[in-house]
């Protein structure tokens, strides 16, 4: 999963035309540590349908503030540079897959 900060956010997230899910997390957050491998699993299953990115809030605080992330883990879904949905709290692999698949069919 690619690491994003304010520097590469535009290039890696906002200007991508498919769905991008940004996982806001921190090293000291237990559920976040749990979330990362579950997202890897989801990414493997979803393939090219969407892109996953990780924003460690200790290095990407500006992004957390800009997108008003007030609780982590928080998954923010982007499409064409805009936030289209978000999930708060730990999400199981199957839930993430279902979430993305549903969005793909309704967009």
């Amino acid at each position: 999963m690619i690491e994003v900060t304010a520097e590469n956010f535009k290039q890696e997230v906002l200007s991508v035309d498919k769905i991008v899910i940004v996982d806001f997390n921190a090293d000291w957050c237990g559920p976040c540590q749990m979330q990362a491998p579950l997202l890897e699993e989801a990414a493997e299953e979803l393939g090219d349908v969407c892109k996953f990115a990780s924003a460690n809030i200790d290095f990407a605080k500006d992004l957390a503030i800009e997108y008003e992330v007030g609780t982590i883990p928080c998954l923010v879904m982007f499409k064409n540079g805009e936030e289209i949905d978000r999930k708060i709290g730990l999400q199981a692999t199957k839930k993430v897959i279902k979430w993305v698949t549903k969005k793909c069919t309704t967009l």
């Binding site: 809030i57 605080k61 007030g70 609780t71 982590i72 978000r86 708060i88």
Partner: peptide, 18 residues
């Protein structure tokens, strides 16, 4: 307002409100 100002864990989310 959860995650938009309302939190249930100060040590988890405090850093976001520096």
């Amino acid at each position: 307002f959860m995650s938009r100002g309302v939190s249930y864990c100060a040590t988890c989310d405090g850093a976001l409100y520096k």
